[in-house]
Design a binder for these strands. Structure first.
Lengths: 223, 223
DNA sequence: GGAATCCAAATGGTATACCGTTTTAATCTG
DNA sequence: CAGATTAAAACGGTATACCATTTGGATTCC
């Protein structure tokens, strides 16, 4: 055993991860407005790190869809139009039913996590929490599909979804607090065809579920 | 007019783009073997630039699927298994028929480019060129779909496809030189339902086309 | 001979510094 | 006052340097 004392495994937090988490949180919470400039120097100063990790974080955020770069290399908080949201929905309507079909055959090991998620949804105390759990439920299905790339594609859209939903909720505070139970029920309904390993029914139910979900949303508003 | 002489618009080549293009070419051509370590310092020395632009290029290549990072941050040339390729095909079978359906309504402005592509495919002199034109044809459809995110998702898979196909061709040199005409014909067949704006037929023909294409490939081999 | 140990070289993460370009705003011009 | 000009500040791209960790192999030990 080395004299050097205990090796703490690692637990070394890269500063770029710190910057990433910080910026992501502030963008999703709306603390940084859509369209705002994310200057490397300013962010670095705020976070007490150098520009290099900030730079990496910005690239990562671009991949998540939360940030866009101008042609001169400046980073801005992503702005979304209703059109953007429709595009995302179109993709969900293709990818998620596919995931549901694939997942039906091998859902067993994931059932516990799914049920836990539904229970947590019922106990959720805020719209933001319901949204997070909702997306998590869907991501669990994507995971269960067994197609790693499919999951990756979904994750690359998740940031944009959260961005849009967060802004939507902030514009309609207090409304639709019943979403909690509705979401839980809808997800429970999805679980049935999964449990019986019915692939084609899982697929069509998922498509229907996403279409319904779309109807619930207040669709107006821009940015 | 400024005294300072002519402003050459820009034409300033970022060194990171140079590094990106160089590495991409060498990886796709097989000059750098699958699984090989891509050390930042070595690449920087070779290219005569500092590590910073190399670093950026590596991140970009990771996004393209040509490079993977170990948990300690080292970059390696991507290795692909038959399973990976099957996942890609599953996704193509979902995304491209969808793109075809959407594109059918608004294919008009893209017909010329598509026909030019087919003509070029007929004149292609190497398997690599056919592959490039083949992928370009499909990317044109994705573009015509009008869903920008759909195109982005496709592009994030394109690198992996090229990687796999390149390796496959190098293992079966000289075979299937008739692919040239076959590909052109298949693509011409696809063009018909597009021209008549038949969305559902475009969709199913595209699905069929991809399935056929899969059959043509020599499926064995790993890495 | 095989496994644990240890050390030197290699590697990645990050801070700092420099430079050309882009922005921005103040100034000038009509 | 509106538009063009220009100069200063801000910003991004990149080179260099330093440090902690990782790696790979030589060495040691059993």
């Amino acid at each position: 055993m080395p004299v050097k004392a205990i090796k703490t495994d690692s637990a070394v937090k890269p500063r770029s991860d710190l910057a990433l988490a910080n910026l992501r949180r502030r963008i999703l919470s709306g603390a940084i407005a859509p369209g705002a400039l994310l200057a490397e120097s300013a962010m670095a100063r705020e976070l007490g790190v150098s520009r290099v990790p900030v730079r990496e974080a910005l690239f990562a955020l671009e991949r998540e869809g939360l940030v866009v770069f101008s042609d001169t290399g400046r980073a801005f908080v992503r702005q979304l139009s209703p059109r953007d949201f429709e595009e995302l929905l179109q993709l969900r309507l293709t990818l998620e039913p596919m995931a549901a079909r694939l997942a039906a055959a091998q859902i067993q090991p994931h059932l516990h996590a799914l049920r836990t998620n539904i229970a947590a949804t019922r106990r959720a105390r805020s719209l933001a929490e319901v949204t997070r759990l909702d997306l998590e439920f869907h991501e669990l299905i994507l995971t269960a599909s067994g197609n790693g790339r499919l999951l990756k594609l979904w994750r690359s859209m998740r940031g944009e979804l959260e961005l849009w939903l967060g802004r939507l909720h902030r514009q309609h505070q207090g409304q639709r607090l019943d979403t909690c139970e509705q979401t839980a029920c809808a997800h429970e309904g999805l679980l049935k065809p999964f449990s019986s390993h019915n692939a084609s029914l899982s697929e069509s139910k998922m498509r229907e579920h996403i279409l319904n979900w779309r109807e619930w949303l207040p669709l107006q508003s821009g940015q």
